[in-house]
Design a protein around this nucleic acid. Sequence first.
DNA 1: GTCTCATGTAACTTTACATGTTTCATGATA
DNA 2: TATCATGAAACATGTAAAGTTACATGAGAC
Lengths: 154, 154
Amino acid sequence: MRRDSKLSGVLHVLLHMAEIEGPVTSEFLAGMMQTNPVVVRRIMAGLRDRGYVRSEKGHGGGWRIACDVQAVTLRDIYEALGAPEIFAMGNRSEAPGCLVEQAVNAAMDASFREAEALLMAQLGRITLAALSADFHARLAARGGDVNPETAHAL
Amino acid sequence: MRRDSKLSGVLHVLLHMAEIEGPVTSEFLAGMMQTNPVVVRRIMAGLRDRGYVRSEKGHGGGWRIACDVQAVTLRDIYEALGAPEIFAMGNRSEAPGCLVEQAVNAAMDASFREAEALLMAQLGRITLAALSADFHARLAARGGDVNPETAHAL
DNA sequence: GTCTCATGTAACTTTACATGTTTCATGATA
DNA sequence: TATCATGAAACATGTAAAGTTACATGAGAC
């Protein structure tokens, strides 16, 4: 199964946006992420609806962060994406008539729900600002290029 | 993404086997699970390699549980299946050169690893016997049909 | 022996879905 | 009004799980 990388992708976009003054176009972000501008718009749509980012059309348009990065967590972002399915494993069938399958589902669901709750709690503890700080720590550790426009390259 | 239901499926098969005396054919199990005999053999192969079940060819052949259901846990079964991918979400790219992506991956990996550890611990607590007991409790609660051959039906 | 039944396995087909792409409408700025 | 940007729908592609086919192997039944 190919793994859904929307959350990973949108965080990548947000952190790059945080490094750049002024609006950034979908095309520029897509170039950084080696993907398509439409894909960028797609994953950003949920964040726009929640007010985490704003988009502007026309000349000088593009995307802009519109939230407090100290307050917004990875969990918020995950939910803005529509809370996509977390697990690659699942029940063969929901609401089965077979009592064996009901017993199997009940046991698995309970375990998976607990793991999901822990994951959500973890993501709820990480703010965008914390992620950005980690990025800057890595940059400093590499004695790095602090030009935001080129910091993306290897 | 379509969710991997091998674990759910194999547990279903095992619990049905536990209800039936003597060997059970792949075809019979496939009928119960509304799938194909080859699919059954496929998911059972890992369990056979670990000695949790035995298979016999020819007349009167089929599958038979060959382990202590009080001792084997859902985690054991999960591992016998080859420990398939748990999460439907993942990083856009592993080992990226981009420091932003490294920061994103590190944060996400840490959270997902913790959730995975908890899930494994949960599954390690549930034995096949416990699942079977739950099934029998459901059966009794329904005042049910105790014929193992037909207990599957709605 | 040989017929039938069952598993073992490889190869192939189908299906679902995340992602990528094309296209055009809409709005903003120069 | 020409250009640049997002918005969104429609379509194409790649991939992996699940389903299917085909045939080899081995174990009773006769």
